[in-house]
Simulated scan of single mutants.
Amino acid sequence: MRVVSESELAEAVRDAQGPLRILGGGTRAPSRVGGTPLEVAISGISLYEPGALTLIAGAGTPLAEIAAAVAEHGQRLPFEPADWGALLGRDGRSTIGGVVAANVSGPRRVQAGACRDSLIGVRFVDGAGTVVKNGGRVMKNVTGYDLVKLMAGSWGQLGVLSEVAFKLLPVAPVQATLVMDLAVPEAVAALSAALGAPWDVSGAGWLPGVGAILRVEGLAESVDYRVGRLAELLARFAPRVEREGSAALWADLAAVRPFHGRAGDLWRFSVKPSEAPAIAARLGGEVVLDWGGGLIWALVPEGTDVRAQAAPYTGHATCLRGDFAAFDPEPAPVARLSAGLRARFDPKGLFNPGIRA
């Protein structure tokens, strides 16, 4: 089923006779989600005010369309989302609703925050087929439920997004990347040292075949100064400065390009950065690191439930490609809270069944 307006979406939910699998571009849903497909194709930018750094768009608007529109005015989504279609081996185009539902946040999260931190408004249809609106065009204090933040990362289990609103940021005029040929343990030490320094790093990751990478952005003189200070701080790791190829490195990291077209199950661990080297060693497979080691992408042989293998870890694991429940079981108090929210917003249990164990 495909809907192209909010009214069609509300009607489809009200008329549903069984569970629904919520789709945008079809590039993000974990493998075990069941139900009748409901494709949300409510597309288009309904408001864009470059002077106010504000954008409102239908949830089915392709991410690439939004990126192109704001780039014309020298602006960007602060949290650097990437299209996961090639990573997960799926056709389709990533949509902004899917970005919000999964709270997708790229390398710039260490500086600009996550998707939910830039999201200022949502419209969605709940499990009763009612259109709900929360937030608006400007950042402000919220009373009652902060549904804007609640919908970010809800993976479609609380409602089906129809419209989203964001605050934007200007594109930095200059960027440079420090590259260090390091293995994971030394890389995490270097990234942690840089993130703890006052030099406003906007990306900190590790790519196989490249090593540790650190990004600095801003005005040219500021970038040169901060790169120099970081080079002094990290002198023992022998950093080199990459300027011409800097943007390509971060595009590769955001899209997890080393794993494109590769067979195997794909896992994503959100953990304490200090735990990353030990977890990576226990996994034994191939990894990509982001957020200073706080995000681990792992490619493992098919049929491998790596949660037990990676343990112990502080955080959570997500199976994005593989025949396992997408998320770790929640602690009992959190599970009760989550169940209560789902019962309130989706009392018939329509949305994305099977996404949790």
Rank of each mutant, 00 (worst) to 15 (best):
V3N: 12
S5R: 07
E8V: 02
L9Y: 04
Q17T: 12
P19T: 04
L20S: 07
R21P: 03
I22V: 06
I22P: 08
L23K: 11
G24R: 07
T27P: 11
T27Q: 12
P30L: 08
V33H: 11
T36Q: 10
P37D: 01
L38N: 08
A41Y: 15
S43K: 14
S43A: 15
S43W: 14
G51H: 03
G51F: 10
I66Y: 13
A68M: 11
A71H: 09
E72S: 05
Q75Y: 00
R76P: 06
F79N: 13
E80N: 06
D83I: 08
W84G: 08
A86T: 04
L87I: 01
R90D: 14
T95V: 12
A101K: 09
A101F: 10
A102C: 15
N103A: 10
Q111G: 15
F124A: 15
G129F: 13
G135W: 11
N141I: 06
L147H: 08
M151W: 10
G153K: 07
S154C: 09
G156D: 03
G159M: 09
S162P: 01
E163N: 00
K167T: 15
L169I: 06
L169S: 13
V171P: 04
A172P: 08
A172M: 14
L178H: 01
M180N: 02
P185A: 11
V188P: 02
V188Y: 02
A194P: 08
L195C: 07
W199K: 01
V201Q: 06
V201C: 02
L207Q: 00
G211N: 02
V216D: 12
S222V: 14
V223M: 03
D224M: 05
Y225K: 06
Y225N: 07
G228Q: 01
R229H: 14
A231V: 14
L234T: 01
A235K: 03
A235G: 05
F237T: 02
P239R: 05
P239L: 09
P239D: 04
R240H: 10
R240Y: 03
E242C: 04
R243N: 00
G245N: 14
S246W: 07
S246L: 14
A247T: 12
V256D: 12
G261C: 07
L266K: 12
L266G: 00
F269C: 03
V271R: 05
V271Y: 03
P273C: 06
S274F: 15
A280F: 08
R282V: 02
G285I: 04
V288E: 00
L289P: 05
W291I: 01
G293P: 05
G294W: 01
A298M: 07
P301Y: 06
T304H: 10
V306R: 11
V306N: 14
T318F: 15
C319Q: 00
F324M: 00
F327K: 02
F327M: 07
F327N: 15
D328P: 02
P333S: 07
V334K: 11
R336E: 04
A339R: 01
F345P: 01
A357I: 09
